[in-house]
Design a protein around this nucleic acid. Structure first.
Lengths: 169, 169
DNA sequence: TGCCCTTCTTAACCTACTTCAAGGTACTGA
DNA sequence: TCAGTACCTTGAAGTAGGTTAAGAAGGGCA
């Protein structure tokens, strides 16, 4: 099912059931959680050819704690759970495709946990620069700040420090 | 392939290739990373009926950054990548089993990232108590501290604070 | 029983990061 | 062209959590 979204629109809100797994054809999305102090924390972004959705809510039929918002006008292919099961029945080869998809997400998540637990903000910033250089210009600073787990104010300082160091060396 | 390990033994060291995916029949393992200050950070534990290994190294044939150590005498079933592929060929139904396994790991990793990014040490401690009550007595405090991302010293304070609060209410 | 070794706790001090407040910059649209 | 609004930066002051150092409390083993 093809769906279009405008910048600013939400395709998932906390408390809802995540009924669609979405393949992004065009545009950009962010997935975030709102904490008890009403601060937003970006968990993931999605650009062209990425999937986005809350797997926990989608597969386990529970309500989601996450929000997904479009931040560049977008076109996505949305698949329901029933759809997906039918696809798998009629085409068992997809099993291994989905298996790899989950495996890769899992590996990326592990790396993320490693960097959150094992390094400070400065090196998380460096990691981000190295891992996602192609998306930098499409992401507002505040989104990156939230992704690496710092405030926009502190992110500003990180950037300054980073560029001064790389200039010096 | 059945393998036995004694408390303290390593089954994977940073820099090696992870050649086995291990299903724990008995005993306990921890997987951790060592940071640039030689501090250890526990990423995961594994008890009876859990799988443990570094999926990134195992599947992508790269060296690992992780260490896996046995901390209760253990018995595991170890599967190589070739084994696993043979199993999948001869029994395609396993595809969906593995798919679900990865999916669940992914969901758990997401929850972990959420709690690292979106909440403070006190509530991460509470989350841990609620999520893994059955393993508390098998885990030294320092391992839990490292898992939730604090020092043993600060963990001590967290515990004290937590029990004082729950006594008061 | 007593000793060593590891784990846990406490307290004083330190630092990475946050909060708050203010001002600057740059799109966007009438 | 200008105003409005979102975004970014800077600095001062505050706080969660880290570091260091020391003592207390187990637990295996001679």
């Amino acid at each position: 099912m093809l769906r279009r979204f405008k910048k600013g629109q939400y395709i998932l809100n906390e408390g809802e059931f995540c009924r669609y797994n979405n393949f992004v054809l065009q545009g950009a999305f962010r997935m975030f959680i709102v904490d008890e102090n009403f601060k937003e924390h970006n968990l993931q972004f999605a650009f062209n050819n990425w999937w986005i959705g809350d797997p926990k809510s989608f597969f386990n039929d529970v309500t989601t704690r996450l929000n997904i918002q479009c931040f560049e006008n977008a076109e996505v292919l949305s698949v329901t759970k029933a759809n997906q099961e039918k696809m798998l029945e009629s085409c068992p080869e997809l099993n291994s495709l989905f298996r790899e998809k989950f495996r890769n997400s899992m590996i990326r998540s592990y790396d993320r946990i490693l960097s959150l637990i094992g390094s400070n903000a400065q090196s998380r910033y460096k990691d981000f620069l190295e891992t996602y250089p192609q998306y930098l210009h499409r992401l507002p600073n505040q989104y990156i700040a939230s992704y690496i787990g710092v405030t926009p104010e502190f992110f500003s300082k990180l950037k300054k420090e980073y560029w001064q160091q790389s200039k010096a060396s």
